[in-house]
Write a protein that binds this DNA or RNA. Sequence first.
DNA 1: CCCGCACTAGTCTATTTGGACTGATAGAGT
DNA 2: ACTCTATCAGTCCAAATAGACTAGTGCGGG
Lengths: 199, 199
Amino acid sequence: MPRRALDNPIVLPVLGLLLEQPTHPHQMLAELRRRSDAHAAAITRGTLYNTVAALTEAGWLAPLERQRSGNRPERTVYTLTEAGRDELVRRLDSQIRTPKREFSQFLGAVAYLGALGRDGAVEALTERGRRLRQRTAEDEQQLEDALAAGVPRMHVIEAEYALSLARAEIAWVDSAAEELRSGALTWPTGAAPEPEEDA
Amino acid sequence: MPRRALDNPIVLPVLGLLLEQPTHPHQMLAELRRRSDAHAAAITRGTLYNTVAALTEAGWLAPLERQRSGNRPERTVYTLTEAGRDELVRRLDSQIRTPKREFSQFLGAVAYLGALGRDGAVEALTERGRRLRQRTAEDEQQLEDALAAGVPRMHVIEAEYALSLARAEIAWVDSAAEELRSGALTWPTGAAPEPEEDA
DNA sequence: CCCGCACTAGTCTATTTGGACTGATAGAGT
DNA sequence: ACTCTATCAGTCCAAATAGACTAGTGCGGG
């Protein structure tokens, strides 16, 4: 009986999807992956079915009907209950209201940038900038297309947010690379941070 | 025998720490938590010991000595091997070079901002802005103090990066809240996205 | 018209993880 | 001196996860 299952990161996407329409787990997975909706890409079957079970037990989801086409495995369609809708709003509100220090791989890597040596660091950062710029350009294009096609802005708002952050990252990466190149940002000692006599 | 253990997110912090100095797992944990070094906060004992074992087996770490003081549990100090140092550099380089779409809770929540209703959304975003501004001010202060105290910039570079992103987030949150308030960003239909006849 | 391949929907198990537990030592307070 | 608590350093197991596996269906190509 899933205990922590109720606060794993895929709960929100699941509730969010069901707000739009009742579906069965397999379809959720496909849909979430298609949208790459958030971290959805990281969802795996095990977690999903497990989570759906937990949410059902918590009374936030309810099985709506079981269908089967031909002799395919039976599938169960779930809806959001009243309580589920409330819970979604509660979580949404709290997650927006309260910033949490989240954590990206890149941030972790930057902390040890020193280990790459000056030239290596410049090289890698420059490359990142290049790729980031390209990806961002594509995303911008996509967003524009969607808006041009009449999709309401509210529906692409997270793309706008992601773009803002991406632009900020590009700016930082560029400036860091530049400062390293020009020598404005210098190396403390060798490759490794100097082993000071303790902190 | 840990299989996926070699590519879990704490590998980099562990290798990074050992680059500075040999240590035993318990100390790594304490140190990583103290620095809140990256997601380090998320590290738990189980994972850490497991990872250290895997890294050792992979030949990137080697037990240096086993010490014991008094009748305390014996502790094993590990060092980074030559291969481990190479691996660290390889990972660092690739993680910096290649941007990955990482994923934050907030991004996921923003996607369903609509479910909060206009006023709720404005409220929540405004509050986030407030908290973010405060936290960022503190971080700026800390960074300044560190620099004033003579810490080389290279050692606080990840803090500089985090600050840039935080400022960008603040800007976005403020502008989104403002647009909602002013009506420049409008609601498509009711609380839920309209149930179109499929995509 | 038959074969292979991809998709549909889930189930199920080996691996991983969180975090409770152990059992010692050092210092704080009384 | 004597509890009480915090820290030290791990081990260990129930719970959660990744992703292999099952098993039926439909379609494209030779």
